[in-house]
Simulated scan of single mutants.
Amino acid sequence: MRTRRSTFVLAAAAVAITQAVLTGCSKGTETAASKLPERTCFDVFDRSDLGPLVGNGEQVNVSGPADMQLTAVRRGATCSVDVDGKDRFLASATRQPLEQSFFWNAQLIKPPADPLPLGDKGIVYDTGARVLLVCKGSQDSFQVELSLSGSTDQVEKGESRPLFTRLMKKFVEAGRQQTRCGV
């Protein structure tokens, strides 16, 4: 038969063990997303957007220009996010004349890419997405390729394509504005 004192001692021990386990589990598992700037990669994505791709880590490095305002002279902009020295996310925008074309060898993508109904042409696959924008304006006509890729090690199986589709929707909207596509 348990006494009040033994029940109290058992309860106190259980609390101490639970705290130790939880503390041990949380060491070294701080999410890298919490170390990202509030908005990143051309001011398009916020922490919660990139959280599933960056995972856990100690040191986060974001590199790239502040915007993707492309011209005939500045033809590309790339933003990369790495965590503890490992690439986790890449967003790029590339501009070229209409008479040139971007080549995507979708047959090499395994499992096969799905069409992405964004822009003038788009595909989404397990580790990224690409969209082509044809920009015909009153003063300038060109095309822009928007590309996203990322490490999906931390993403649940079957969730990477919906994730890249959501990210690409934001990227296309910002890409049209920042590159002045169709203006």
Rank of each mutant, 00 (worst) to 15 (best):
P65R: 09
D46R: 02
G57A: 09
P37N: 11
S63R: 11
L70W: 02
K35T: 06
N56A: 15
R39Q: 15
S48M: 12
E58P: 05
N56P: 10
L70A: 05
F45Q: 04
V62T: 10
V44E: 02
R47K: 07
D46Y: 01
L70V: 06
P52D: 02
T29K: 09
V54T: 09
V62S: 04
K35Q: 05
S34Q: 11
P52R: 01
S48I: 06
F42P: 14
Q69S: 15
D49C: 05
D67L: 06
G57N: 09
T71V: 12
T40G: 08
M68D: 08
F42L: 12
R47H: 03
K27F: 14
T71Y: 07
D49V: 00
A32I: 02
T31S: 15
F42S: 11
N61P: 07
R39N: 15
M68C: 06
Q59G: 12
A32T: 04
K27C: 12
N56Y: 13
V54D: 06
V62C: 06
A33Y: 00
D67I: 07
D43P: 08
P52Y: 00
Q69I: 13
P37R: 08
D67P: 07
A66D: 15
F45S: 02
D67N: 14
T29N: 14
G64I: 05
D49H: 02
V44Y: 01
D49N: 05
P65W: 08
A33G: 08
D46F: 02
A32D: 06
K35L: 09
P52L: 01
G51W: 01
E30P: 08
S34G: 10
L50C: 04
T29W: 08
P65T: 09
V60S: 04
K27N: 15
T71R: 10
G57F: 07
G55H: 14
K27Y: 13
L36W: 00
A66T: 15
V44N: 04
F42K: 09
V54S: 08
E58V: 05
P65L: 11
T71F: 05
L70H: 04
E38T: 13
P65F: 04
F45H: 03
K35S: 08
F42E: 12
S34T: 10
L50A: 08
P37T: 09
R47N: 05
F45I: 03
A33C: 01
V54N: 11
S63G: 09
P37I: 01
S48V: 08
P37K: 03
V54H: 04
A66W: 14
E38A: 14
L70P: 06
Q69C: 10
P37D: 03
A66I: 12
T29I: 11
S48P: 07
A33V: 00
D46I: 02
N61L: 10
K27R: 15
T40Y: 01
G51N: 08
Q69V: 10
K35Y: 05
L50M: 03
K35F: 03
G64F: 02
V54C: 12
S63W: 06
E38N: 14
N56G: 13
N56M: 14
G64Y: 00
G28S: 00
V60L: 04
E30W: 06
P37E: 09
D49K: 05
N56K: 15
S48L: 10
D43V: 11
S48F: 05
K27L: 13
R39Y: 14
R39K: 14
E58T: 12
E58D: 13
L53D: 06
G51M: 04
Q59C: 10
